[in-house]
Design a protein around this nucleic acid. Sequence first.
DNA 1: ACCCAGGTGGCCC
DNA 2: GGGCCACATGGG
Length: 223
Amino acid sequence: MIPENQNNRIADIYRRLFACFGPQHWWPGDTPFEVMVGAILTQSAAWRNVETAIASLKQAGALSPKALREIELARLGRLIHSSGYYNAKAKKLKALAEWLGKYGDDLDKAFAGDPSEKRRELLGIYGIGPETADSILLYAARKPLFVIDAYARRIAERIGIAPQSDSYEAYQRLFASNLAPKARLYNEYHALLVKLGKDVCRKKPLCPECCLREVCAYGLENS
DNA sequence: ACCCAGGTGGCCC
DNA sequence: GGGCCACATGGG
């Protein structure tokens, strides 16, 4: 089912990335609920700005499902101002908190059941799309759902292994079908792709001595 | 001054 | 099913 030979480029890239950078210890966050909040706040935003917003929520005692349900929308927007799209994201956080309320704010209950079924349920929540749903299921619930983000797409394109379709699901299949379905592996792989994308390629595009040279060069327009 | 960062929903065709 | 646009801050 899963190619274990050297032709498995997906698995090979993972081995190289891990050998180069080691474990990334994702997702940054003290609790599963904080991970869920971070997954929404980081939508098209720099993580630095999300950290500031989460710190504000903590400071205000608003980092719990109950508090998010009760807080005034405008005040919530002010607290998460630094993460950008703050009006939209305030509504999204409330939608998330309302959903958790159906499970008595018990994350174990909320995440119980078939992961792909749970994924469809999350996609029904306002503000949760494919990447946020998978981030929540992988990093907060430890379910083996591979997360596709802009980095995963660009890196796959750059090394010439992009799927025919540009759809989220096509990219997800590309990675998942070449890996054992382990949450620990998916966790580390996605984090390493982000590490490669933002901390390495932009600073050292050619990486001449690196075993990841072909992977790191993805951002070059005319390489 | 511009460009982008760990996307998503609402339209439109 | 795809293409476009609004949503918005902060750092390079």
